[in-house]
Amino acid sequence: MSNIKIKDLKFSYDKKNYIFDNLNFTLRKDKTLSIVGTGACGKTTLLKILNGELDYEGSITINGLEVKEENFLELRKCIAVIFRDTSFITDVVKNELRFSLENINEDPAIIKEKINEINEYFGINKLLNKNIDSLSINDKTLVKILSYALIEPSYIALDDLLDDLNLRTKILLLNYLNSKNILLINVTTNMEDVLYTDYVLCIYKGISAIDGKTLDVLENEKLLKRLGLSLPFMVDLSIQLKLYGLINKIYLNKEAMVKNLWK
């Protein structure tokens, strides 16, 4: 049972301008989350706080564990946070994947087994012996995420990384995380990716402007547009066509939409 509770979170870098001013949010058990918001609203800062990099006021618990220095060792098994500038440690893909597992003192036989498993799942046999520097952005991002996913934490938090993957890899990765019961926390500006998660948290000026189930949040079209965010294409189209009275609910796939539009 995994959950995250954020209560009265206060944080500022310079003790003057508060980035978070009493942010309250609860992520219910076994749900995935997207964090959206305007530029410089503190999306990355929130992830840094969850990772334990910054001191904060208020309380944050992940799986019942308070985010503070004494709990860091256990917290690493609860949450893995990957930033855009998280760098690679070794030079070859195989070593990079092994490294994270060796780091938690895993048995060499299990390491081999796990790497074989993802090798089959993602079909990355060609990549394993390649130099990381020579990979494409898509493959680099995949290796970066997988090296953390192999540890199998309860949550994996990505700072705008999903956007770097192509559609095929993205779906594969999401299915993989799902099969391993790893829950995704995705910080994004690409609103299309919001549809992959159960819940959405939209941050504005230090508080949660709106949060809840994904479709419930997206139906607040006016608020999101006032913040400068767009809607996912199919949702936007559905809402507009609903206003014209052409359809009566939100369709998320184009086949159903076309079928119901010209009936």
Binding site: D163, T189, G228
Partner: peptide
Amino acid sequence: EKGLIYRE
């Protein structure tokens, strides 16, 4: 364009 919101 990566990381910019729609308005930007």
